[in-house]
Design a protein around this nucleic acid. Structure first.
Lengths: 115, 115
DNA sequence: CATATCCTTCACCCTTGGGTTAATTGTTGT
DNA sequence: ACAACAATTAACCCAAGGGTGAAGGATATG
């Protein structure tokens, strides 16, 4: 359907989510990422390929050394994911009441009825 | 592996995401969900099991007929996922400028360029 | 009690996908 | 040109996971 599916599929892998968290520190080289993950370059490259295919990261070549590839986060898919979550928030707004940000009021969760 | 990992893993499957979208219409019976998905009951049940294990849905028994199981969305994991996305927003806020909640200001939604 | 209904669990098959090592491409430096 | 380096791609192995049909548990109905 939309790219939210691809985003979620890409983020499903713990390793890829770790890559995203690493890239929160700024653009990083592929080798740096592999070292940080304690993972072999091929395995890392495969994950980065998935992240790139789903639009989560972007890659450029270093001006200094064209062998090095700099990966960095793209913002668009995360915004799309937020939009999807906002729709769910709207659903709960209808179901439960008038408040919208429930994170600030954790007491309103539903309880088990028959367990 | 925190709950965000479990949430993303559960939502990675397109079928399960479709289930979540179906449940946005309100609580539904397992049989209804299977019919809506055009999927066999066992397959649907497995997906619902995953969604339940990751805390995305909750299940209760119908008062009228205890054979029927009513599934409905839980809010907590989605809030946690939003929190994780908010952290990423903070990252872009540092990278790009002073704004923090970009989702609320769609005018500047796409700041990235393909390169 | 016997039967039908609703849903889940089980046993099985098969595809998907991650991880490794080895080979390949492209780039830098001597 | 040659060697060293960075990263990707290829070939292979293996575990994880979804789909199906059959069986099981629980509840309603007669």
């Amino acid at each position: 359907m939309n790219d939210v599916d691809a985003t979620l599929a890409a983020l499903a892998e713990p390793t890829r989510r770790r890559l995203v968290d690493l890239l929160r520190g700024g653009p990083r080289r592929a080798g740096e990422l592999a070292a940080a993950l304690r993972m072999t370059p091929p395995a890392t490259s495969r994950h980065l390929r998935v992240l790139r295919a789903s639009g989560l990261v972007d890659v450029t070549w270093s001006d200094d050394d064209a062998r090095l590839r700099m990966y960095r986060l793209r913002r668009e898919p995360f915004v799309a994911l937020q939009a999807w979550l906002d729709q769910l928030d709207a659903f709960w707004g209808e179901q439960l009441g008038s408040f919208k940000k429930v994170a600030e009021d954790p007491g309103g969760a539903d309880g088990g009825e028959r367990g």
